[in-house]
């Protein structure tokens, strides 16, 4: 077993890892996009006055939030087919990520909506706004800056959770490194590089998100201290 870092080997496997990175980014991006909408549905479900829908949504959200992503992933990919519901590894991954992070995002939305003072709703009523204008023009624009940090956290979170997709055979960055390792018996370079690639992407993203928060807050005229 050779523990010496080999640059030539590192450069040799780099294209393969970068290709895996593209899939990792796609998985995180598409999964997050789905989660944004599922989160919205969950949030609306928890705010509705229809008791059955309200109750059911709460239970589902609580259930998903209280079980590990990996278990859900295995369930959708390995167990669901036994009930006749078959997904490709990629689709299973997108569904699971979307649902899992959708529940987190619904909580972020809920918190952000509740952060808008109830007097803002009353001002809207006094000006006779319709419900959709109230949401669209007054409430959501104020809730958005509040939701942004939480949404940003989960974007980075979903990105860092993508290596789990390797367990069901989605060929993303982690899986690419696994393949390199099992073919060459060299693990030092591929896994180190995976870590570094994640770092290189996560850090600027987090920084960019913080910048975005400031910009949005400023545009909204809400001074950030």
């Amino acid at each position: 077993m050779n523990l010496e870092w080999r640059w030539d080997f590192a450069f040799e496997i780099l294209p393969q890892l970068l290709w895996g990175t593209v899939y990792t980014l796609m998985a995180a991006g598409i999964g997050y996009f789905i989660a944004i909408f599922i989160g919205l549905l969950f949030m609306l479900g928890q705010r509705t006055r229809f008791y059955v829908v309200n109750r059911a949504t709460r239970e589902v959200v609580e259930f998903i939030r209280s079980t590990p992503l990996l278990v859900q992933l295995f369930f959708v990919f390995f167990v669901a087919p036994q009930f006749g519901i078959k997904f490709s590894a990629w689709n299973a991954a997108m569904i699971t990520l979307g649902l899992h992070y959708g529940t987190y995002l619904s909580e972020v939305y809920r918190g952000a909506l509740e952060a808008v003072p109830k007097q803002q709703w009353e001002a809207c009523k006094a000006l006779n706004f319709s419900v959709s204008r109230t949401y669209g023009k007054i409430i959501l624009p104020q809730a958005f800056p509040v939701a942004l940090p939480g949404m940003g956290n989960y974007l980075v979170g979903i990105f860092k959770d993508t290596p789990m997709l390797a367990t069901i055979g989605v060929v993303e960055l982690m899986q690419s490194a696994n393949t390199v390792g099992s073919l060459t018996y060299r693990f030092l370079e591929p896994y180190t590089m995976v870590g570094i690639i994640f770092l290189i992407i996560s850090l600027p993203t987090a920084f960019g998100l913080r910048k975005l928060e400031t910009v949005v807050a400023k545009r909204q005229g809400i001074s950030k201290k």
Binding site: Q119, E122, A123, G221, I222
Partner: peptide, 12 residues
């Protein structure tokens, strides 16, 4: 029309 104790202007 109504004017409130806490003004309730739209901050954004």
């Amino acid at each position: 029309g109504m004017v409130f104790q806490q003004f309730n202007l739209f901050p954004h």
